[in-house]
Design a protein around this nucleic acid. Structure first.
Length: 446
RNA sequence: GGCCCUAUCGUCUAGCGGCUAGGACGUCGCCCUCUCACGGCGAAAACCCGGGUUCGAUUCCCGGUAGGGUCACCA
């Protein structure tokens, strides 16, 4: 289309009636990407004309979420502060006869009479070109003379949207597919007001695994939930971009600035896309692995109680944190594992049974005891008690005896678990004194 | 139900008349390995159905079916 000469202006228009929804976040992202791509402006418009449902805390959640994702806006407006613009438009519409005041009994309180404003609808057919779907036509006679304001001073959604989009110079309306049926109404109001029509692009919806609309019942829908779980904004941005859009190549990992370079409405998908937490997790790992080690460590330790044993273990053993980072996609996953006792060996000394200490290939208690004793003998004089040094000290012995025969009982003596990090890492993380004490304690029962 | 939108592996998708239908996530197998995890390699897995158009349809058209959205004095 020819937007020659006019600057691209896109917008996200959330209503603060709930926490920042993941679908709204994606619409925001697409609008932001499009604006940045075309050196345009991105505006945030808080649609709070419904004063009874709008809440300041939700507005804050939305704004914080946008900032966290890195979607900075060039302008921020609230519809509640622009009422005169809507009432002016309303007056003009009534004066020109395009709209009229209608005395009716109130919808909710039938004993009361109200004066709503309705648009005089000629009922013609409207066709608009959607950038992702092509031409879409509606017979607007089915809409009737729909209400555009509760009263002469109390404008409704469609009117406010049309007035704002025009006055703010919005060139591209990029929004969810659920708005398709709103478009003919808005075009009708636009035409009655003599305004120019913006370019429309309706994005496919984000679906729950059962292909229905994403809802609280079917998983996390608020951006803040993902944030709390420990997902990186880089991962979310990357994943949201891939839901309903593709670069036309086989690349999948993108930074937000790479997305700006490649984004195009012509590559937007038409069909709804199921939100797949597994793929998000994968992207989370990919982006996390691109962070420097210090940032990764902070990601996984910042939510830990500083006085907890596990926190102290991590402070003295980088290998222990590295292991955790490798194991879990998010800090939330890690915290949950801690709660389930996956890392109980860091908190309390285990008491493994003979059976647990026994490796399937050599189930002889005497041998196990002898080997554990040998391990203690080797480790006792060790100066540097790091994962590498410990492995170095024990390796030739382990190879001679059969690695499983040495490493399995050692690891179980240290962890008390069939599944755990390797014994060298455990020994380092536990510290020399505790590690030797655990191995010695295990021998007592053999 | 009316109107509107949509339809390629389980999922996200590439494809824009002729392809062994490609990639990714997930799944499975093998390797690595004391266990788990990581990593490496490999495999299974899709064109909703029926008519056209065409020498030839996953691709274009029509119909069906299925799914979704929307039908407020909410946004």
């Amino acid at each position: 289309m020819s937007t020659k000469g006019t600057q691209v202006v896109t917008r996200i228009a959330p209503s603060p009636t709930g926490l920042f929804h993941i679908g709204t976040a994606r619409s925001a992202l697409f609008n932001w990407l499009y604006a940045r791509k075309h050196n345009g402006r991105f505006v945030v418009r808080i649609e709070d004309t419904d004063s009874t449902r709008s809440k300041k805390e939700y507005e804050r959640d939305i704004l914080e979420g946008l900032m966290w994702l890195g979607l900075a806006h060039d302008e921020l407006v609230r519809q509640s502060e622009r009422t005169t613009h809507y009432t002016d438009a309303l007056d003009a519409l009534i004066a020109s006869g395009a709209a009229y005041v209608s005395k009716e009994t109130a919808k909710n309180d039938t004993s009361r009479t109200v004066e709503v404003v309705r648009l005089r609808n000629a009922g013609k057919s409207i066709t608009f070109t959607d950038e992702v779907r092509g031409d879409i036509s509606f017979e607007t006679q089915e809409l009737g003379d729909f209400v555009i304001a509760r009263s002469r001073t109390d404008p409704l959604y469609h009117l406010a949207v049309v007035v704002d989009d025009a006055q703010m110079g919005i060139t591209h309306v990029i929004r969810g597919e659920d708005h398709i049926s709103n478009t003919p109404r808005q075009i009708l109001i636009q035409e009655a007001l003599g305004l120019t029509r913006p370019v429309y692009a309706h994005l496919p919806l984000i679906l729950a695994p059962d292909r229905s609309k994403l809802s609280k019942r079917k998983g996390a829908v608020s951006l803040s939930e993902y944030r709390a779980q420990g997902y990186l904004p880089e991962a979310l941005v990357n994943y949201l971009a891939l839901l309903g859009w593709n670069p036309g190549t086989e690349e999948e990992i993108f930074t937000i600035s790479e997305l700006v370079q490649r984004f195009s409405l012509s590559q937007v998908q038409k069909a709804g896309a199921v939100f797949d937490i597994e793929k998000l997790s994968w992207l989370q790992r990919e982006h996390r692995d691109r962070l420097d080690q210090r940032t990764q460590f902070e990601l996984f330790t910042s939510q830990l109680d500083e006085d907890s044993t596990i926190h102290q273990v991590f402070m003295r053993s980088p290998a222990a944190i590295r292991d955790v980072v490798e194991r879990y996609a998010t800090s939330g996953d890690f915290l949950q594992a801690v709660e389930q006792g996956e890392f109980s060996f860091y908190e309390t000394r285990p008491t493994p049974t003979v059976e647990q200490l026994t490796w399937k290939k050599d189930p002889t208690p005497d041998n196990i005891k002898q080997r554990l004793q040998h391990i203690v003998n080797i480790l006792t004089p060790l100066e540097s008690f790091t994962q590498g040094a410990i492995k170095n000290a024990l390796w030739s012995y382990a190879e001679k005896e059969g690695k499983g025969n040495v490493l399995w009982p050692m690891r179980v003596a240290l962890s008390g678990k069939e599944r755990s990090p390797d014994p060298f890492l455990l020994a380092e993380a536990l510290g020399k004194e505790e590690a030797l004490a655990r191995i010695s304690a295990a021998m007592v029962h053999l």
